[in-house]
């Protein structure tokens, strides 16, 4: 019953988030601040992870192709498909659930514990619109982060390929271009938009409705990470079945 109650409460929170909007000059500042915190602040870790995971995917693919009948350009092809279809949108989102999700839950949770949310409510401000809406809008730029992740992942694969001597640069590029389907990129970005919404709202829900003190803020952050990851994985399965199945 608690799960059903929480799911219902989550959808009510989303509906409430769009009611009685905060004045635009104030909201604009909040959105820019959240873009800085959530998007710009995540570029470093996404770039670092994408580059090296791209390299690892290339090395593992190259090492597992031992049959001389399989063309060498397949390394580039496999790297592109892995990064564009799954690694960049899904696994980066899981990493972001840890980084951005914990940040959102702990910052809103701390505001709850220190009565800052009560202060907003007493003033007559729609605290959900004030706190959650700008984060949701800021995370609509998340596909740009994923685009950078895709580019750097493929670049990392290329670097590993060339410097590791697994295949030639020409073969890798040929593989990248082989059977390229634009819809795969579209599919990937649609997933990313959905995950961005999840990344903004589930951690906000756990922070906003938490009860207790400082210890509970930590617990709420952990719970938020778990549920954000679970929902991303489930939605990934559903969306993949709907769009590629």
């Amino acid at each position: 019953m608690t799960y059903l109650y929480n799911i219902g409460n989550y959808f009510l929170m989303i509906a409430e988030m769009f009611r009685k909007p905060t004045k635009w000059p104030v909201m604009k500042k909040l959105i820019f601040k959240d873009i800085d915190d959530l998007i710009i602040g995540s570029l470093g870790i996404v770039a670092f992870i994408s580059f090296f995971v791209g390299g690892v995917i290339t090395i593992q693919t190259a090492l597992n192709i031992s049959n001389p009948l399989i063309p060498k350009y397949l390394v580039g092809f496999a790297t592109r498909q892995s990064i564009v279809l799954e690694f960049a949108p899904t696994f980066t989102s899981i990493i972001m659930a840890g980084k951005v999700g914990s940040f959102i839950t702990s910052s809103i949770g701390t505001m709850r514990v220190t009565e800052q949310i009560d202060a907003l409510e007493v003033m007559g401000i729609n605290s959900l619109n004030y706190l959650v809406f700008p984060k949701t809008i800021a995370l609509m730029l998340y596909p740009f982060v994923i685009a950078i992740g895709m580019f750097l992942g493929i670049l990392g694969g290329m670097a590993a390929c060339v410097f590791g001597g697994y295949t030639s640069l020409e073969n890798y590029i040929l593989g990248l271009q082989t059977d390229f389907d634009t819809f795969h990129v579209i599919y990937s970005f649609i997933k990313t938009f959905v995950f961005a919404f999840i990344l903004a709202t589930i951690p906000s829900f756990h922070g906003f409705y938490m009860k207790g003190g400082a210890l509970e803020v930590g617990k709420a952050s952990t719970t938020s990470f778990v549920w954000t990851s679970v929902v991303i994985i489930l939605l990934n399965y559903i969306l993949t079945g709907m769009m590629l199945g």
Binding site: T114, E115, Q116, A119
Partner: peptide
Amino acid sequence: TEDEKRNLRSKIGMVFQGSALFD
């Protein structure tokens, strides 16, 4: 109504026990 409640609240000032300043 909810909107009337919010309007009324805008006429309320509150000093919380822990001050509740936006940090």
